[in-house]
Simulated assay, not measured.
Amino acid sequence: MIILYDIPTSVSESRDWSPNVWKIRLVLNYKGLPHKTQWVDYPDIHDLCQARGIPPGGRKPDGSSFHTVPIIYDSKTLCYVSDSLQVAQYLESMYPNRSLFPVGLNAAILSFEDLWLDKVLRHLFPLMILPVYLKLPPASQKYFRTTRELRYKKKLEDLAPLQEHPRLWDQVRRGLDSMSRPMDANGKEKLFWFGNKITYADVVMVAWLLWVKRTLGTETSEWRNILSWNNGRWGKLMRHFEQWEFVDNPSRL
């Protein structure tokens, strides 16, 4: 059994929001690996890691490391692994069925997330920080506000003023346009970054889009817009991944 550590929201019906944890949850579900989620609030992650000798899994802009999720514990090997990419690679090496890192594509997959960050996430981050904060439990809210305001040198409320939202969402749309164009080169009917083959690159895209879906909600105009952009490409991708979009129990869907 694998334990997956995740940060909960205060909303009981949609506790699971973290995009980095969703990367690993999607990998586990895609590979059909039995696992269970253990919830840990932001302020408790450091103590958990210190007590169990778990290495830091995050890196600040200044290069220093810090403890964060995702973390897994694998009872088969009695080891903890942190950092989403390292966890995904560990799961690939230990459980190679339904590979997400096909031979010959590792370099391309490993460089993909930097491209996604540059084209899409840097525009999306300011829009999502405050909505995430508002969904967290009080103890996590305090930690999140303190750490993020130190990182961005601004109050959370000032990262994306309401009047800036149309411009920022347009930048997100343009970023998704720039990701869609090379995917079209595979054939407009192809869903995945490498055409017909699902890889970890697709997991990365879906996990970050799930961040929007599960934080803002499926009825918001922002989410409906994303599903419709690029002739519905992102809606088709998300619908394909719905079969692996569950927490612990597939009957939840």
Rank of each mutant, 00 (worst) to 15 (best):
114 D>C: 03
116 W>F: 15
116 W>E: 03
124 L>E: 06
125 F>I: 15
126 P>C: 07
127 L>C: 15
127 L>R: 06
128 M>Q: 07
130 L>Q: 14
130 L>G: 02
131 P>M: 01
131 P>Q: 04
131 P>L: 06
132 V>D: 01
135 K>F: 06
136 L>N: 08
137 P>C: 05
138 P>E: 05
139 A>H: 11
143 Y>V: 10
143 Y>K: 04
144 F>P: 02
144 F>R: 01
146 T>G: 03
147 T>I: 06
147 T>K: 10
148 R>C: 09
150 L>S: 14
151 R>M: 15
156 L>Y: 13
156 L>C: 04
157 E>D: 13
159 L>V: 08
159 L>S: 04
161 P>C: 06
161 P>A: 05
162 L>D: 11
162 L>E: 12
162 L>C: 10
169 W>M: 10
171 Q>A: 12
174 R>A: 11
175 G>L: 13
176 L>A: 07
178 S>G: 02
180 S>H: 15
183 M>F: 13
183 M>C: 12
183 M>D: 01
183 M>V: 11
185 A>R: 15
186 N>V: 02
188 K>Q: 12
188 K>P: 09
190 K>H: 15
193 W>Y: 13
194 F>E: 03
195 G>I: 00
199 T>V: 02
199 T>Q: 14
203 V>L: 00
203 V>S: 02
203 V>D: 00
204 V>P: 03
205 M>D: 01
206 V>D: 01
208 W>P: 03
209 L>I: 04
211 W>S: 01
211 W>I: 00
213 K>R: 15
214 R>M: 08
214 R>V: 07
